[in-house]
Every structure is written in structure tokens, then in C-alpha cells.
Simulated scan of single mutants.
Amino acid sequence: MDLRIFERRYLDLVRDCGRSASGFGVCLILEGDEAGAPAIPAAYGVEARIENFDLGEDGLLSLRVRGHRRFHVVRTRVRDNGLVMADVEWRCADEDGEIRPEHALLGTLLQAMMEKVGTDLAKLPPRVFEHAGWVGWRLAQVLPITPEQRVSLLQEDDVHARLQRLLEWID
């Protein structure tokens, strides 16, 4: 995901992440906006790790981040600069086994979508499209599903149950 950073609270966040070599949480906003007053976040999210940064022509900081691990928010508080901070419980990592036969269509669908769009993912070895967790997260990223559906996928610890939900939504 690409982000453009311009608010002081987010510049402070990026600075703190750089100093501690850590990531930051990204959650769906339930109430409020990305800019301005602190928003109310969803109770589940993903830790984002900064992969690259640059200063844009407009003078704004541009970040390229990648999702790392899922979390459940236990408690939130707002810093004096307006940044929402949270205590979180880390969710278990996916067991990235192979896609079960009943979900094989999803791997094929994702591969066809990537080839049609022409992304770098289309150049990956075909074997990667057989990994249940990887396919589920890529489909959650690219399918036209609601933000609430995306959050429900974050809450699901079982990769095959996650794929089953995606399959039902595609129907």
C-alpha cells in the first residue's frame, strides 16, 4: 500500500517507527476521517512495515508499506498530537498449507486476474497460487468487497474458513 504523509501526528509516527525499527497499525475507520480529529478504528487490523519512502514533488512524504501480521485491539488511547495508540493482541500466523480442492477455483481466479491486469504478481511461479493463506489475502486485497467484509476476514484465524467466505461472496 502507498501512503502520503502530511499530518504532524503521522510524521511523528514515521519518525518513531524509524527509530525503533517497528511498524504501525492500520485499521478500518469506523467513525471519522483519516485527517483531522482522531478517528474510531475497527477492533482488528494489520501491522504495516515501511519498505520504502521518498519525498514527493509536492513536498509530502510518500511511504510504501507492506502488511506484516494481524492484531486485535484491546485498548486505545489518544496522544496529545491526536495519534490513536493501541494495546494489541497479535493473532496467530496463518498455516500456509495448500488450497483444498473445494477452493482451487480461487487460486485459478486470482492467477487469471493477475495475468489480465499485468501486475508483477502474474510473474510469480504458478505454485504460489496453491498456497491457501497467500491466495486468501491477495483476493481480499483485490476483490470488490466491503470494508466490513475485509475486517471479518482479518478476524478469521482459519485460512480455509477465510477462503470459504471469499468463495461464497464470489457466488
Rank of each mutant, 00 (worst) to 15 (best):
M1Q: 09
D2R: 13
R4G: 13
I5G: 11
I5V: 14
F6D: 04
F6H: 07
F6M: 06
E7W: 01
R8A: 15
R9I: 11
L11C: 14
G18A: 07
S20E: 05
A21F: 05
S22M: 06
S22K: 11
G23E: 01
G23Q: 03
F24Y: 11
F24A: 11
G25Q: 04
G25K: 08
V26I: 15
C27E: 06
I29H: 02
I29C: 06
L30H: 06
G32D: 05
D33G: 13
D33K: 12
E34Y: 00
A37W: 03
P38N: 02
A43W: 08
Y44R: 07
G45N: 05
G45H: 07
V46C: 11
A48R: 02
A48S: 09
R49T: 04
R49H: 01
I50Q: 01
I50H: 01
E51K: 00
E51M: 05
N52M: 05
N52D: 15
F53Y: 10
F53G: 07
D54N: 09
L55A: 13
E57W: 01
G59D: 03
G59R: 02
L60F: 14
L61N: 07
S62K: 06
R64S: 14
R64Q: 11
V65I: 10
G67Q: 00
G67L: 03
R70Q: 03
F71W: 08
H72I: 08
H72Y: 10
V73T: 11
V73C: 06
V73Y: 04
V74A: 12
R75E: 12
R75P: 09
T76C: 13
R77Y: 01
V78F: 09
R79N: 07
R79A: 14
D80Y: 07
D80M: 06
N81F: 06
M85T: 15
A86C: 12
D87I: 14
E89V: 15
E89H: 13
W90Q: 07
W90A: 10
E95D: 15
D96A: 13
G97A: 12
E98F: 12
R100E: 14
P101W: 02
E102D: 09
H103Y: 06
H103N: 09
A104G: 04
L106G: 10
L109H: 08
L109V: 14
L109F: 05
L109D: 08
L110S: 04
M114I: 11
E115R: 08
E115V: 02
E115T: 03
V117M: 03
V117T: 09
G118W: 00
D120A: 12
L121C: 04
K123Y: 05
L124A: 14
P125W: 00
P126N: 03
P126G: 01
R127P: 01
E130N: 13
H131G: 05
V135Y: 01
G136I: 05
W137Y: 01
W137P: 04
L139N: 02
Q141T: 14
Q141H: 13
Q141G: 12
Q141A: 13
V142D: 00
L143W: 00
T146S: 15
P147S: 09
S152Q: 08
L153Q: 04
L154P: 07
L154E: 02
Q155D: 04
Q155M: 12
E156H: 12
E156P: 15
D158H: 11
D158C: 15
D158A: 14
A161G: 00
A161P: 04
E168W: 05
E168N: 14
W169H: 03
D171E: 13
